[in-house]
Structures are given as structure tokens and as C-alpha cells.
Design a protein around this nucleic acid. Structure first.
Length: 423
RNA sequence: GCGGGCGUCGCCAAGUGGUUAAGGCAGCGGCUUGUGGCGCCGCUAUUCGGGGGUUCGAAUCCCCUCGCUCGCCCCA
């Protein structure tokens, strides 16, 4: 084995798995285009500044997971850890909002410097949706249903949608103060992580997985008591809309989400079949982000799905059969000329053709033809060349019988005969 | 960043201190230089993730290192 290896947490997608990806991607493209979304592609590298301002300096993603480096001009660059900030930047920079609100989707690699484990890599892929410039609650419902229906279209039917509201910035601000006081009074009961977070990001303590903390928090002040009338109405209406769409959900008051830009609606879609990294899809409303990046106040909502996790879940449901229609067996230089030519011709006629290059015995070539999974073998030897004919043999009409049917035809008849035989 | 498990051919593996490192799958070649799916025969690791050490002798013991994997944290 070579001592040249890929970097830790970076994964090769080999031909054997690529079918799964293409299938999921094509279903996604189709699904999104029917929902009226347009695709956007942004660079993989951005100014570090974008993520500092967009995601928030106190988040784990920014604090300890970014791939940041200096380029030759001394600029601080970062491999994007998520898609939303880049999309927001591109929208602003290119003035897309001048054409009205935007409904976009994107896909591609993201980078986070973390310890790899099941369902987590350093380079991973997300596919995401961003509705930028929409305030109405039905846009929330629409965005969630696009995610839900997409996952259903992939045959996933045992997922859980968790839903919460983070309220407006004002709601959260007054709640934060109250929560801090309450936590400070119980400082000694908190674990180290939570103690550190009190001043930096107290909301995140609510999401703690520590059982003792969880228990303690049952008594803590609840954000829901600090929601303004308007925030409450939004959340109620969203639930009504989802009920109306028959999309099942579970309210999870501790669902906070790790990135700073979220407000109001927050949601996650999780699965029991992913090990400890259970989230397939995460998203929410981010009304402040565009303004934080220097744009106009622009209410927005979106989500991202982790492709690797999605592939884990859908793998068994996706069948892939990419067998050739015919395998071209040939022997001798004259035959090779004919073989190459008709291979090209048949491919342009939309057949899937595999050509043997080996020049080895007919026996060997038949073996390979069989292994290729092709339905037919097209045989060209010196005999055929001298008679101006071709032979076609069926490889899998009668699994049990020895030897498939053989047909002789001219080059002109080939297309028709193959069409007939492969149905 | 912290813990646990693991690392022998492309894949699955046996071997746990003693001369040439089992076996299976896949691959290649032959039996069969014009006929596949079955069968039979042969070939394919100077080397056991890498580097040091102990020993007459190491894949097997020790140290370091790298990687994989699962979990924690956090997220997609």
C-alpha cells in the first residue's frame, strides 16, 4: 500500500457507492425544482470574517471547528463549515434581493475540523434550502414541508420532526437575563461546560445532554413564558399549518440549535438509525443574519440536510442496476476495427455498450461478457468480418439452459435486433 | 480536545516468539488460440500501518507514532 493517504476525516466516494449519491441528488433536484426553487453555487472558501459575523464567535463551529488558513496574500480564508452564510453573502453581493425575495437551494462539501465518527466527517456534504426575504408563517410551513416531503420521497417514513420557537431577539434577551440569574443561583450544581456557558451562551445549557443538568432544568424558567404575543401567535399558527398538512411533529422546548443566527422557528429531523449523530436535517428562521452581514433587515428561513447521513438511511432502499445492454467481443485486428466502430455507433444510438480490449480468447471474453451483466454479447471475429456480418448471443434469457440463442445479422440490422432483444 | 476497541494481499480473515506468513472471495493465466454461467489446475503479501527497541530469532513482547472505528462534546 502507498504511504500517501487521504487526510483524516476526508472520504473517497468510490464507484460502488456513487449510484446512491446520484439517485438522491436527482430526486432532490427534481423535488426542489417542482417547489419552484433555484439552485445557487457559491465558493467553498470565504473570508474568515464572513463566518465570524454570520455564525457567531461563541459557537463551537467557529470557536474550534473551522479550517482557517492564510493565503499567499496574507488574507485569512476559511473552508466553509456550512452553507447559509455564503448564500446570504452571495445574495447581498449580487443584489439578488432587488428582484424580490429568493427561494434557493444549494449542495456541496462543507468542512469542520472535528473528530470523525459514525455519521460525521471533516469533509461532508450538505444539501440545503434558503428562503430569503419571507416573513410569513406559511413560508415556515412550506420550508419544513419541502424537507419533510423530500425525505418521504426517498422512502424514509420513521423520522421525527422536532419543533421549537426561539422567539424574537427581544423575547430571547429578557429570557436570557432571567435564565442567567436562575443558573447563577445554582452555579455549584452545574457541570463545567454549563458553568462556562452561563455568560457566553446560556441558551445552549438548555440543550445539555448531561442527565443531572437535564433534571435540574425541569425547574428552570422557560422561554415559552417570555414569548411576546406575536411570537406565540406565530408558533401556534405554524403548528396549525403543519397539522393541516398532516406533517407529524414533536415540540421540543430544549431544541436550541448551535448557530447564533436563529430566531423564532427552529427544527430538526432525526432518525433512530444513525447512531449518536441522529440529526439528518436541521434548520430554522434567521431573521437577523442578512442585516448582521450589512444588508437590509431580511427575514429568512432555511435548513440543511447531511448527505452522508441521508445516504446511510436510504442505502438499502435504492437499487442500482447499471448493466450494459451489450458486450462487444472481438478478436483480430480487422475485427477490432469493426468492433470499435459499431461500439461508437450503438452508443450514439443510446445503447449502453462495453467493449473488450483484451484480444484474449473467445472463451475469456465470453466470461467477461457474462460477468459484466450485459444482456447480449456481440461477437466479431475474422469470420464475421469476411462475411460482413455480426453475431449476437443472448446471455441471460435462460439462466438454467446451457448456451443462449444466437443470431446472425448485418451491421445495418444491428440496431433493430438489439432493441428487440433487450426488452 | 477527551475516553474505549482495532490495524496481517483489493475484500473477508488464520496465525499470539522458532526454518518457506493458512484459507476463502475477487483478479490474472490455463484446461477450452470461436463460445459464458459449473468444475479443475496454476499464479498473485521477501512481509504483517510506520519507526525504534528487547531477543540467537518477532506479525506475535515493549516504547513511540500514524490511521481506522465507536462514544463524549457538538452538529448535518
Amino acid at each position: 500500500m502507498t504511504n500517501l493517504k487521504n487526510l483524516r476525516g476526508m472520504v473517497d466516494l468510490l464507484p460502488a457507492q456513487i449510484d446512491y449519491w446520484q439517485k438522491v441528488e436527482s430526486i432532490a433536484r427534481d423535488h426542489f425544482s417542482r417547489a419552484g426553487l433555484e439552485e445557487i453555487r457559491t465558493p467553498i472558501i470565504e473570508q474568515t470574517e464572513l463566518f465570524l459575523r454570520g455564525i457567531g464567535e461563541n459557537t463551537d463551529v467557529v470557536g474550534k471547528e473551522m479550517y482557517t488558513f492564510e493565503d499567499r496574500g496574507g488574507r485569512s480564508c476559511t473552508l466553509r463549515p456550512e452553507g447559509t452564510a455564503s448564500v446570504a453573502r452571495a445574495i447581498l453581493q449580487n443584489g439578488l434581493l432587488n428582484n424580490g425575495p429568493q427561494r434557493l437551494w444549494y449542495g456541496g462539501p462543507m468542512f469542520r475540523y472535528e473528530r470523525p465518527q459514525a455519521g460525521r466527517q471533516r469533509q461532508f456534504h450538505q444539501i440545503g434550502v434558503e428562503f430569503v426575504g419571507f416573513d410569513s408563517v406559511i413560508s415556515d410551513a412550506e420550508v419544513i414541508s419541502i424537507a419533510w416531503d423530500f425525505l418521504c420521497a426517498l422512502g424514509l417514513n420513521d423520522l421525527t420532526l422536532e419543533l421549537n420557537t426561539l422567539g424574537s431577539n427581544e423575547d430571547r434577551h429578557s429570557f436570557k437575563e432571567k435564565l442567567k440569574d436562575w443558573l447563577n443561583q445554582r452555579f455549584d450544581l452545574l457541570d463545567e461546560d454549563s458553568q462556562k456557558r452561563i455568560n457566553v451562551n446560556p441558551l445552549r445549557i438548555l440543550d445539555s445532554k448531561n442527565i443531572a443538568i437535564k433534571k435540574l432544568l425541569c425547574e428552570a424558567p422557560s422561554l415559552s413564558d417570555f414569548l411576546s404575543k406575536e411570537s406565540k401567535n406565530r408558533f401556534d399558527f405554524l403548528q396549525e399549518l403543519l397539522n393541516n398538512l398532516n406533517i407529524p411533529y414533536k415540540i421540543n422546548k430544549n431544541l436550541v440549535r448551535g448557530l447564533d443566527y436563529y430566531s423564532h422557528t427552529a427544527f430538526e429531523i432525526t432518525s433512530d438509525h444513525l447512531g449518536s449523530q441522529a440529526t439528518v436535517c436541521g434548520g430554522g428562521r434567521y431573521d437577523g443574519l442578512i442585516a448582521d452581514l450589512g444588508g437590509p433587515k431580511t427575514p429568512s428561513i432555511g435548513w440543511a440536510i447531511g448527505m452522508e447521513r441521508l445516504i446511510i438511511l436510504t442505502k438499502d432502499r435504492i437499487s442500482h442496476s447499471k448493466f450494459p445492454d451489450a458486450y462487444v467481443i472481438n478478436r483480430g485486428q480487422n475485427a477490432q476495427q469493426v468492433a470499435l466502430k459499431i461500439t461508437r455507433k450503438l452508443r450514439s444510438d443510446n445503447f449502453r455498450i462495453e467493449l473488450d480490449y483484451s484480444g484474449s480468447s473467445f472463451s475469456k471474453q465470453f466470461k467477461r461478457a457474462d460477468k459484466s451483466g450485459a444482456k447480449l454479447a456481440i461477437v466479431i471475429g475474422e469470420d464475421e468480418v469476411s462475411k460482413g456480418q455480426l453475431m449476437i448471443k443472448q446471455l441471460r434469457d435462460d439462466e438454467k439452459e446451457k448456451g443462449g440463442k444466437e443470431y446472425i445479422c448485418s451491421i445495418e440490422e444491428l440496431n433493430q435486433l438489439i432493441s428487440k432483444l433487450i426488452v
